[in-house]
Design a protein around this nucleic acid. Structure first.
Lengths: 141, 141
DNA sequence: CCGAATCCATAATGATACTG
DNA sequence: CAGTATCATTATGGATTCGG
């Protein structure tokens, strides 16, 4: 019955039959890289912060006002994480009061491209996902 | 969607100056949708599971063998989550012993496209990210 | 074989108060 | 203004055990 043996996972084929897009990632340590990036970008606030910086630099509290619901602590932590990963730059102007500006780096802007594509998928399909959830949750009792 | 034409419309501009890709998401409730999807796909195992199903359906323990390190509990939970979101289908054959097959749905396969693109970015840029981390961590003392 | 149930450790997030 | 420090709460992941 096993008419579809695994190709011993040598290559690719993530959706190539559908779109010609190929992911050369499969079982390699690259999986770790993907997951690593996904984990950074998949946390609760990173994408919101990146979006807040998409059209230019922002000061800390500007950003905070742009992202309703974020706590001071989480904004700090998220910015630090993005800065550590080289996605966001932090510029301190030692004035009184202090001024700190955040902006996307070139790497950060380049990440925006695939994130935006995933975002477009999300916007286009969130309805289907929510419908599926409603069906699943409803049929569960 | 391949090679989005330059809509050149409302003010959004997430990286349009770089690539012509536009994200119409900015401050809208759509942000929530993006984050929602990102959270699903950003957890520790979802992408690995989806990859494991990319080239065809798999039984529970096949999948488990294909994903080194995943616990039974997390495989179950991840599959349930993906199933709830309509990304994976679950087919039970009531034999003895029972047989359960998992496969990507059409929605799940369509998600693979932007995820693969993000994956390609990750593979291409993980080196830069890790270098940035080394610099940041080193300069922190 | 597939999975639920239970228990536990750790990490992520949030609320609040304080500081240069 | 732009953080840090502390504490409480919740989410996530893993190990083990049990059941259909």
């Amino acid at each position: 019955m096993e008419t579809v043996p695994h190709p011993a996972q040598e290559g690719t084929s993530l959706s190539d039959r559908d779109t010609g897009v190929t992911l050369e990632v499969h079982n390699a340590p690259q999986c770790t890289a993907v997951n690593d990036i996904l984990a950074r970008v998949g946390d609760k606030w990173s994408v919101r912060v990146v979006m807040g910086l998409a059209d230019g630099s922002r000061r800390f509290n500007e950003l905070r006002r742009d992202i309703p619901g974020i706590s001071q602590r989480m904004l700090t932590r998220t910015l630090r994480g993005l800065e550590r990963d080289g996605l966001v730059s932090r510029t301190v102007t030692p004035s009184v009061p202090p001024r700190v500006d955040y902006a996307l780096t070139a790497l950060g802007r380049s990440l925006c491209v695939p994130v935006a594509q995933l975002g477009n998928w999300a916007v286009a399909n969130i309805g289907k996902v929510e419908a599926a959830r409603a069906v699943y949750d409803g049929g569960q009792d």
